[in-house]
Design a protein around this nucleic acid. Structure first.
Length: 669
DNA sequence: TTAGGGTTAG
């Protein structure tokens, strides 16, 4: 009774008072102490035993191995007078579990030399050792021994072979082993789930799951994990609910997956319920669980709670650190993130990519490149994720030079055809004005997703290649990728800037009916802009009045701008009223208004608007342009004088101007 | 004594 509960301490007390010695009872107590983590007590009991049998030795050897005490375990193994196949196998599998697969194989050879015959469990461990070492050929060479020993049809051995094949991407072979099996157990079925996941067929994996003859908590956890890892968090949580309803008990691994799925939904309440539950059942200290909790709190914006959790974790690993740093980054607390990043005991590629992504998210592009340089100096090889962030940053800076440099590195590392990197490259080239290169990258991408199409359609539209943009949108409609609201915005933008007003209106009207996308404020604004640019001012005004929500500031500004171009004071007046109700802190509405009054010669009104602006403390924001010279971006503002070489530059412009005048005179004369 | 399932960055 005591051995099956947490009450191992009471059980030990009872054993102390027990007069005499019983070998079986002692073996049970050693086992129970190991199970509840009292390794030292288990060893003490073993050492004090006046008499031991095979079970005593094997229990201790495997118990020490399971807890990572490899050397200690091997010392007992060497002293073991009962060197039978079970204790050999315990040592071999212990090596494998602790990451010493090569030592496991060496021990296996010693086992063969000793004359003891390996059994099916030994072979299972050996196959796993080969899988861990990634040596498929070596595993195949053991298959001869397996057949000779008559274990080729054994369920466990076959299971380990399936898992080896999956790890080595030998999918067909995995399927052949599975099909050849005369008897299959829950492990075989769970392993085959992964085969379909590996083939990218999650639906088929689910079908196997639904139809398998037997399921246990590991099978459930596996299916839930596969959904979560594939990004199908909702499906993962649904399955978890079903698991509980079917009375299966989720364990540590299952809870960590579920917490991760909840984080993605920022589901704080359910996450906190699980936090309470894992505390109650005593697994909150598991590093996977506690790291997931750090992630959960951070993703829900509760970095303070995340930090409390983080500080309480005894055996933090690199993922724990990355989760906390990622949490600070996500919530804009970059200083805290950097502080932690600087003191973390070891960093991996995710740590670097995480902090880079944080700076990118908050548009601190200079920091992005600063950290990237640090990453290169540290010897850490950047991965696809790093490049995807860096290319976004260089697109944000519209820095073609930086982008090209990154492109070179991408090619060197062979990431060119990755879908994320390819998309980021396309976006970078498009945003940096090199639309030809953007098109080339896009066309060469072996696989494209919704985002890839979006950046290309958007890039073409915004670079003035309006027809190409609309053509590409039509091309995309032939694929399985569904249009999204960003693409529709680009399409409307393209129509607006090429005067294709009716086509634009057609697209807008089909948004809900054909594409099932509810138009947002920005789409309405784009339509107003389209109508205003083409002089259809009354239509634009009616359109604004028919909008299901308050017009955006930009929509009114677009109409006003149209009124200015087409000199329509009447609509301008009404729009201005609306604009003034909406505008308070933004100066461009006032500027536009004053320009309209000026073009109509209403100078008193112009003065009034300017006065209003002064009273409200508003200043016209200046235009800005920039150019990149030798890896450095130089910005120029219309108020001027801000660039450190302003004086020289204006001098040079004057010189050029006079040169041009001289030449002009020479030609005309 | 074994084989199947877990946390972080884009």
């Amino acid at each position: 009774m005591y051995l099956n509960s947490h009450k191992i301490v009471e059980a030990n007390e009872i054993l102390k008072d027990f007069n005499g010695f019983d070998l079986v009872v002692h073996n049970c107590m050693i086992n129970a102490n190991i199970q509840w983590g009292n390794l030292d007590q288990a060893r003490r009991l073993f050492d004090e035993m006046p008499e031991r049998n095979e079970v005593s030795w094997t229990t201790l050897i495997s118990g020490l191995m399971k807890n990572g005490r490899v050397e200690e375990s091997m010392r007992y193994f060497a002293r073991n007078p009962f060197q039978n196949v079970v204790s050999w196998t315990a040592a071999i599998s212990g090596f494998v579990q602790n990451g010493f697969s090569f030592e496991a194989l060496k021990l296996f050879l010693k086992l063969l030399e000793s004359g003891v015959k390996p059994n099916e469990v030994t072979f299972t461990s050996i196959v796993r050792a080969c899988a861990e070492l990634g040596d498929f050929q070596l595993a195949m060479s053991f298959v001869g021994l397996i057949v000779k020993a008559g274990f080729e049809k054994n369920v466990s051995v076959s299971n380990s072979l399936i898992s080896l094949c999956l790890k080595m991407c030998e999918i067909d072979l995995a399927r052949r082993v599975f099909n050849r099996m005369e008897k299959r157990d829950v492990v075989s079925w769970t392993a085959i789930l992964d085969m379909y996941v590996e083939m990218g067929d999650l639906a088929e994996a689910r079908r196997i799951f639904d139809e398998m003859p037997e399921r246990n908590e590991v099978t459930w956890s596996a299916m839930i994990a596969r959904y979560s890892q594939g990004g199908y968090h909702e499906e993962a949580l649904k399955l978890f609910r079903q698991m509980i309803l079917d009375a299966f008990k989720p364990n540590t691994m299952c809870f960590s997956t579920v917490l991760s799925a909840l984080s993605n939904f920022q589901a704080l309440r359910p996450g906190m319920n699980i936090h309470a539950h894992v505390m109650k059942i005593g697994i909150v200290e598991d590093v996977f669980i506690s790291s997931s909790l750090v992630d959960l709190y951070s993703k829900c914006g509760k970095t303070k709670d995340g930090r409390l959790m983080f500080d309480s974790i005894m055996g933090k690993n690199v993922v724990t650190w990355n989760s906390m740093i990622g949490g600070y980054s996500l919530n804009g607390e970059m200083e805290e993130a950097k502080k932690l990043f600087d003191i973390m005991p070891q960093r991996n590629d995710v740590s670097w990519s995480g902090i880079i992504a944080g700076y990118l998210e908050h548009k601190q592009f200079d920091k992005v490149f600063e950290v990237f340089n640090g990453m290169l100096l540290s010897g850490q090889i950047p991965n696809k994720s790093t490049f995807s962030s860096l290319l976004c940053a260089s697109a944000g800076l519209a820095s073609l030079e930086k982008g090209k440099d990154l492109h070179g590195k991408v090619i060197k590392l062979g990431f060119e055809y990755d879908i994320f990197v390819g998309t980021a490259l396309t976006d970078m080239y498009a945003k940096s004005g090199d639309i030809e290169s953007a098109k080339r990258i896009f066309d060469r991408m072996p696989e494209k997703n919704e985002i890839s199409w979006t950046v290309m359609i958007q890039g073409l539209a915004e670079s003035g290649f309006v027809e190409e943009s609309l053509f590409l949108f039509e091309e995309m409609e032939k694929t399985s990728v569904a249009p999204n609201d960003f693409m529709l915005l680009s399409v409307l933008f393209a129509c607006s800037h090429s005067g294709l007003v009716d086509k634009g209106l057609q697209y807008f009207n089909s948004m809900e009916t054909v594409y099932h996308i509810k138009p947002k404020e920005k789409h309405y604004t784009c339509v107003v802009d389209m109508l205003s640019r083409s002089g259809r001012l009354s239509e634009a005004e009616d359109f604004i009045n028919s909008m299901p929500f308050q017009p955006e500031y930009n929509a009114l500004a677009a109409l006003l701008s149209g009124c200015k171009t087409y000199k329509n004071e009447e609509i301008a007046e009404r729009t201005t009223k609306k604009l003034l109700e909406l505008v308070d802190k933004n100066s461009s509405g006032y500027v536009l208004l004053s320009n309209i009054y000026a073009s109509a010669g209403r100078w008193v009104d112009v003065m009034n608007v300017r006065k209003l602006m002064r009273e409200k403390g508003l200043k016209k924001s200046g235009g800005c342009s920039w150019i990149e010279v030798r890896n450095q971006v130089h910005s120029f503002y219309s108020e001027d004088g801000t660039h450190y070489q302003s004086a020289e530059l204006y001098g040079l412009i004057e010189l050029l101007r006079s040169e041009m005048l001289v030449r002009d005179n020479n030609w005309t004369n």
